[in-house]
Design a protein around this nucleic acid. Structure first.
Ligand SMILES: [Mn+2]
Ligand SMILES: [Mn+2]
Ligand SMILES: [Zn+2]
Ligand SMILES: [Zn+2]
Lengths: 138, 138
DNA sequence: CATCAAACGATAATTATTTTCCTTAAATAA
DNA sequence: TTATTTAAGGAAAATAATTATCGTTTGATG
């Protein structure tokens, strides 16, 4: 996703296109999943005078507008990502890496509905363990 | 789980059996999943002079000792529960109810491993939607 | 009951997040 | 291009959440 596309998305949501916002979204495009502190550090690289409040305000705003999404990971800080098609997450307990994985969960989802009587609209799964690198002791 | 059993569990982990701790665990037994504020309010009912710090300290301690477990729910505060066999959660976006559901996830778990090369040790799923009550407009 | 360490409550300190308010800059139209 | 409008930025204050400190109390043990 390039700058033009990001700008377009911001405008679609009636958000002004500012360099700080572009940088936030670009950082997320580059790294996938970042927490507040990492995001602040990234933006600071390009805009040393950026305020932490600006990062907070923009993340909150863009998350509200469904441009970004918060992912809650067991035993660690929430990370944010650019919203995309529904998917699930892998989390390495050793190096902290977070990766996407697309899996069809309709099966267990249907079972959950049958067992509980709930109407399930959304399923979020986090698989925790060891990534390939950390598995092989490297 | 009765008071004696809870006391036993506390002692097993070298934790002194205090009325505040008993009340915390009893509250979780009664309500299943509670966040910090609800837990503090519950303990206050029996011990009006309890300190919020005591609740925080005990939750942290008992979670470390694996007596309790934190559950992170999308778009809402973390809740705590007494640790039990692995299971998943249902969350009603309307009334906030949180329920357990036992589902075999070994299938999608294996698929996640194959797709990613990760070694998956733990799978946490939160199904969000509407509980039976909220479904039927009540 | 006496002893001792752990836990408690009160409160201070720290960390995280949100709000305020004035200045700056993006969007839009002249 | 420039002027106007308004949202967004930065700095700092305010608030919320969590953790640490410390003197006192209490549970465990003998
Ligand atoms: Mn993702
Ligand atoms: Mn549960
Ligand atoms: Zn790893
Ligand atoms: Zn409900």
């Amino acid at each position: 996703m390039n700058t033009q596309t990001i700008a377009l998305h911001l405008r679609e949501h009636n958000l002004k296109v500012t360099p700080q916002r572009l940088k936030i979204v670009e950082s997320l495009n580059t790294y996938g999943h970042l927490n507040i502190d990492m995001l602040y550090a990234e933006v600071q690289k390009s805009y040393p005078s950026v305020s932490l409040a600006t990062v907070y305000k923009n993340i909150a705003l863009m998350t509200e507008k469904q441009l970004l999404e918060e992912v809650k990971i067991p035993e660690s800080k929430s990370v944010f990502e650019v919203k995309k098609a529904p998917h699930h997450h892998l989390h390495c307990r050793r190096c902290g890496k977070i990766e996407d994985v697309v899996i069809d969960c309709s099966g267990i989802c249907r079972i959950a509905e049958e067992k509980s009587g709930y109407l399930v609209e959304r399923t979020e799964t986090v698989f925790s363990g060891l990534c390939p690198d950390c598995r092989s002791g490297s």
